Simulated assay, not measured.
Amino acid sequence: MTRLVGYTRQLAPELGPAADVEALTTAGAVRVFVDDETADPRRRPALTDCLAFLQPGDVLVVPSAVHLSHAVTHFATTVTALETRGVAFRSLTEPAFCTGDEHAVDPAQVLAAVEGLRRRLVSLRTRAGMASAAAAGKRPGRPTVMTPEKVAMAVELRNLDRPITHIARVLGVSANSVQRALAPLPRHPDSTS
């Protein structure tokens, strides 16, 4: 008899796994393995337990391929290893990835699904990196060209009623950079422009 076994992982702190577990149970999973977001994507204990639990004839069911793998190569390796063991794979949201006798798919759909998986994984890694940088007190993105010394000089020149374009030329930066740096600062009470 074919058993459906579910697996999911929490992709972000704000995305709890409850909805995924419900979807997998509704799809017929007899057991659902869950890794929380603190698990290292490369060493997930629930995924290891899930893969060990699967037997020939079973079907591994996931909400989407991004829940199973942290990289496209990991996904391909995992699904190939499952197929070798006689275990089918099913994604609730990506039919192109489903394996088994009843799932004949157009190769173009598979390639499109792989590209979608790659983009979602890149997005997840980017968001995780930005959250990590913010937690470390770093501001992600390109550093500003306006050093504290340049901001002080811009304030001084602006208080002398110099136009933004003139200040930008003197400092060797763009007018937009000067405007952004001066925007949060109050103007000198004597200046009118």
Rank of each mutant, 00 (worst) to 15 (best):
R162V: 11
D190T: 13
A175I: 02
S191R: 15
I167R: 01
T192F: 06
L160C: 11
P163N: 04
H188E: 07
L171G: 02
I164F: 02
P186I: 03
D161T: 11
R187F: 00
N176L: 14
T192R: 14
D161I: 03
D161L: 10
V178Q: 01
T192G: 05
D161R: 15
P163F: 06
R162H: 14
T192S: 12
I167P: 02
P184I: 06
P184S: 10
L182Q: 06
V170I: 15
A181W: 00
G172Y: 14
A183N: 11
A175C: 02
L185H: 11
H188Q: 10
H166R: 04
Q179H: 12
R187N: 04
D161Q: 15
P184E: 08
L182Y: 08
H166T: 12
A183K: 15
V170K: 09
S177E: 07
A181V: 04
Q179D: 09
R187C: 03
A175H: 10
P189R: 08
N176A: 15
V178P: 03
D161N: 15
P189H: 08
D190L: 11
L185P: 09
I164N: 03
R187I: 05
H188V: 05
D190K: 09
I167T: 01
R169H: 13
P163R: 10
N176H: 09
H166V: 11
D190Q: 13
